[in-house]
Design a binder for these strands. Structure first.
Lengths: 236, 236
DNA sequence: AGCCGGTTTTGCGCTATCGCAAATTGCAGG
DNA sequence: CCTGCAATTTGCGATAGCGCAAAACCGGCT
């Protein structure tokens, strides 16, 4: 009973260097599930019983402080893994995962990981690669938060989202899932008010078109310029 | 010719689950080197020809922006690996590594990594664990930068340094390597001026004792309280 | 078509923190 | 012991961005 078509996932980085037959064996250990928009997939602090591969949709990973503030750790795009607590030796999820759109995921029990890695060492190598890349992105984000002001950070964040999950339109690039001002604030370390002000500004300059939970970059190129402008390089 | 005594490194997380004979084989591929205080080990952007294991001393990994600002990514303590660009599939170092004290490192050629991983899959698993942990720490740092103010961030940073590289004294805990106000600023996303002001304040309250590139936490417990204080929880 | 609730916008005062500049200090060499 | 330099301290304005509050908006649902 082929629950999941191997051809759909064979090309993913996670499975690089894994033989097709082996892939089948790996997939047999997984089940798939559908999460409707705005449903939680797992909660920060819960037992890390599973790890996930996103097939369709979009998932937001967010971290919450003891006092309730949240930051968005990342948006997961189709083809990416998430909830890899076990890979880092954590027994509990360090963040909350929530479907921001109707989403379909593959789910493996965490307990299967050691066995899978033993049988298919490429999995560990591939995951290492992935996690390493995320670590670098994290450092870049820290660098930005330390050295750039809010407008630049927002510009960078939107450009990254556009690259990761942008849908090309005639009029520009639309970010392909619902995202609020609050979300952007939580990605860039600011407040929804400030995000709103800045997007309003951009909108009046024709750089973006935005509505409820929806953003279109009309002038990606000009936004790149914004993103790279240093604090002092004069504006008009 | 036993260049490095296996017993000195056998217990390190990197080598968990590796047989002693195997360890010997791994170490044979490494050479060791000594870097004097304030010498560069590798530069951001340079070809990632080697990866490293710190045996003695302390190393600072820092990332520089195009405009020259720096942030400290982390301080490497003895027993930790650094310069793992290859593990994440990067051809160049994403940061600069500098010995902040006279340091001794083991050096493997990056080219040896694939072979080592193939022969000893535990290396990949262990490294994944390490990198995963760093990723989490990174996220924590982002969370702090997003939600806490400078004083709290500095408190957390110093407490972490104390835990990682603190030397217990009768009078408190001393951070075991030279570290300037500027360094702390680059760890917490602020300026050396602000760090200086805050440390001065703490010093006059008897929380710390600090001099040139030297910091002693006299009242770690009270600093913990500071670190955890929320923006509004009133001060005296 | 009309209503409701979440989202976004915007005004306004406030302040934490920056940025610059100048004075001071402490360590390292000679 | 003295000198010079780098690290640190501190004062003082400037300001980016926050926080609160109120209004306007927009969609979806009935």
């Amino acid at each position: 009973m082929a629950k999941v078509d191997t051809s759909l996932v064979a090309h993913l980085p996670l499975f690089a260097g894994v033989a097709p037959e082996a892939l089948d064996e790996i997939l047999r250990e997984a089940r798939s599930a559908r999460y409707p928009k705005n449903s939680a997939i797992f909660e920060q602090g819960a037992d890390a019983q599973s790890f996930f591969l996103l097939l369709h949709g979009h998932v937001r990973a967010a971290k919450t402080t003891p006092t309730g503030e949240q930051i968005v750790v990342r948006y997961v795009a189709p083809g990416e893994t998430f909830g890899l607590a076990m890979a880092i030796g954590a027994a509990r999820y360090p963040a909350t995962a929530m479907a921001v759109d109707d989403s379909v995921v593959l789910i493996w029990p965490t307990s299967a990981w050691p066995r899978l890695v033993e049988r298919f060492p490429a999995l560990a190598a591939n995951t290492l690669q992935t996690v390493g890349t995320r670590l670098q992105e994290s450092h870049t984000r820290i660098l930005e938060m330390s050295t750039q002001q809010v407008e630049q950070r927002i510009a960078h964040a939107l450009l990254r989202l556009a690259k990761q999950s942008g849908k090309k339109l005639d009029q520009g690039i639309e970010i392909d899932f619902p995202i609020s001002r609050q979300d952007i604030a939580q990605m860039t370390g600011t407040t929804l008010h400030t995000v709103s002000r800045i997007l309003s500004g951009w909108e009046s300059q024709g750089l973006v078109e935005s509505g409820r939970q929806r953003i279109i970059l009309r002038e990606p190129h000009k936004i790149v310029v914004l993103a790279e402008r240093t604090p002092d390089s004069g504006a008009a």
